[in-house]
Amino acid sequence: MRYGWGAVLLVVFAGVGTYVFSHGLQADPSVPGDGLRGRLVLTGSSTVAPLAGEIAKRFEQLHPGVRVDVQTGGSSRGIADARRGTADIGMASRALKPKETDLTSHTIALDGISIILHSDNPSVALTDEQIAAIYTGKIAKWNQVGGPDAPITVVNKAEGRSTLELFLHHFKLNNEDIHAGIVIGDNQQGILTVAGDPNAIGYVSIGTASYEVSRGTKIRMMPMKGVEPSLANVRNGTFPLSRPLNLVTHGEVSQVAAAFIAFAQSPQVHDLVEAQYFVPIAR
């Protein structure tokens, strides 16, 4: 027992630390406000998370008794966590699937996906069939679709992204059939990849792409079926590749969660939605 007291001290410190940490973060009952208090956990889509984080900040300012914790992990995880009750609210950057009818979705914004090319690439517009053929490797050179004599670099998203799911669904493709030249993680990496390769073709969120185009990044957004990829066309529903950004709940929701969802759908957050280059929903 000569050195044992050190260990005892350590355990005591750790215990006290854990206690303070877990209890200290609870809302102080003396704070002013409207009586709404508690803690909300949101998990899911990395597309929705930054927006949800901004909304959460504003919500916390309005309701000092509430803490909102936003974690990313993809739409599938958002759905699973909401169903299991691990999260109060799930985030999904897609509509619910037919087998997910046990959940309720609350759309907070719209987003579109645009095919992007390098700004020097002269190929004006490709048909859906041509894009599908390019992604499955049946068309491997730009001169087969009216471009220069150069190999096409197919940029695809990594497994699990809802952007990938929406893209595959729209073009009726299987991820296994795609002959990718480069696989990317997030939108930003996709944009930098296409901007650095005149022969690349990729697809990213319209919001992020239009922001980069406005900053002069060397990419071009390709029209689909004659419709320009723009936030306006996503808003009026004419752009074919668009998706809702949803908050997802399972069964009865708490008062705090209901208040947060109502706030996220209200005009009070439209400026935040637009700042993230998404389309606010019309109410």
Partner: peptide, 17 residues
Amino acid sequence: GLQVLAPLICQWRPPGQ
């Protein structure tokens, strides 16, 4: 690497990355 090196290699032998 993403903005300078990969595009340089791409000019030589695509896709660079």
